[in-house]
C-alpha cells in the first residue's frame, strides 16, 4: 500500500457567529505535494490553515492528517501540532529570546531534546538558510525577511511532516520577499509537504503542484498551476486573476 495522503479535508465548515467563513472545503494533499491557496483577502485561506492547526475548532467535517482524524473527539491537540508547522504573516517570534532560543524552545520543552542536540540541530538549520551569524541576536535586531526566515526555521526545528504557510511574505517590504521565497523553494525541492496561502501568484505558479482558488469560503477551482493561471474555468477565477494581472502582480 502506498503512503496515506498527508492531509485530507472533508466538508470542513467553520462559522464565526452568523458569518460562514468556510462552506464545505474538500481537499487532498499527497505526501511531498505543494498546494497553494489563492484568493482574495477574506476568502477563508487563513481560517482554513488555522483550522488544520487546531487553533480554530471546526463546526463540521473532518480533517485527517497522515491517516489520523485530528478533529475526532478526545484528540490531543498538542501532539497533532508537533507534526504540523505553521508560519504566520506577522512572524510572531518571541521578542525576549535570542534567535537560537526561539528555535530551540519547542524542541527542548516539547520533544524533550537535550540542549546540545537542540542547539546543534538549530545551528544546522540556521547555517543552511544563511542565518548562522544571527543566532545570538534578538528578533528586533533583524530585518523582516530575516525574522520570517527564523520563523520558518523555528517551525522546521520540530521536524514537521506538514508545513502551513499563511501569507508569509505579505508583511514584508518588496525587496525582502525574494529571500523568504527562496527558503520555501528549497523546502519544496527537499520534498516538504506544504499548504501555502499566498498572494504571490508568480511564486505559486512556479512552486505549486496544485493551486486552489478560494472564494468566499469555497474552493471554486483546483488544478495544476499551468491550467489555473492560463485557462481558468470559473468566471470568478478569471475575474480574480484578471485583477491581479491588471495590478501587475503576475
Amino acid at each position: 500500500m502506498s503512503e496515506p495522503p498527508a492531509l485530507i479535508l472533508e466538508g470542513v465548515h467553520k462559522s464565526f457567529r452568523e458569518n460562514e467563513v468556510l462552506k464545505g472545503i474538500d481537499l487532498k494533499v499527497a505526501p511531498h505535494e505543494v498546494v497553494c491557496l489563492i484568493g482574495a483577502s477574506g476568502s477563508g485561506k487563513s481560517t482554513l490553515l488555522r483550522c488544520i492547526n487546531l487553533v480554530e475548532p471546526i463546526d463540521s467535517g473532518r480533517i485527517v492528517v497522515e491517516g489520523e482524524d485530528i478533529t475526532a473527539e478526545g484528540v490531543d491537540a498538542n501532539r497533532i501540532r508537533r507534526r504540523i508547522g505553521i508560519v504566520y504573516q506577522s512572524f510572531n517570534l518571541f521578542p525576549h529570546m535570542t534567535v537560537l532560543r526561539n528555535i530551540t524552545l519547542a524542541p527542548r520543552e516539547v520533544l524533550k531534546m537535550d540542549r546540545a542536540e537542540a542547539e546543534g540541530a538549530a545551528a544546522a538549520l540556521l547555517g543552511r538558510f544563511g542565518l548562522i551569524d544571527k543566532q545570538d541576536e534578538y528578533p528586533d535586531r533583524l530585518s523582516g525577511g530575516q525574522q520570517q526566515r527564523v520563523a520558518i526555521v523555528r517551525a522546521l526545528a520540530m521536524r514537521p511532516h506538514l508545513m502551513l504557510l499563511d501569507e508569509v511574505t505579505s508583511a514584508l517590504d518588496p525587496e525582502l520577499v525574494a529571500e523568504v521565497l527562496a527558503v520555501i523553494r528549497e523546502l519544496a525541492l527537499e520534498g516538504m509537504t506544504m499548504l501555502i496561502a499566498t498572494h504571490e501568484m508568480g511564486f505559486a505558479r512556479d512552486i505549486a503542484d496544485k493551486v486552489c482558488f478560494l472564494d468566499s469560503g469555497s474552493i471554486l477551482e483546483a488544478g495544476p498551476p499551468e491550467r489555473i493561471f492560463t485557462a481558468p474555468e470559473h468566471p470568478r477565477t478569471r475575474q480574480f486573476l484578471g485583477r491581479i494581472i491588471e495590478a501587475g502582480r503576475l
Binding site: N78, R81, Y88, F94, A106, E109, V110, L111, M158
Partner: peptide
C-alpha cells in the same frame, strides 16, 4: 494573543 498562538502551534502546552 499571537504570541500565545505561536507558542501553542509549536506544540507547547498552555502552561509552557
Amino acid at each position: 494573543e499571537s504570541q500565545n498562538a505561536a507558542a501553542r502551534s509549536l506544540g507547547l502546552t498552555r502552561w509552557q
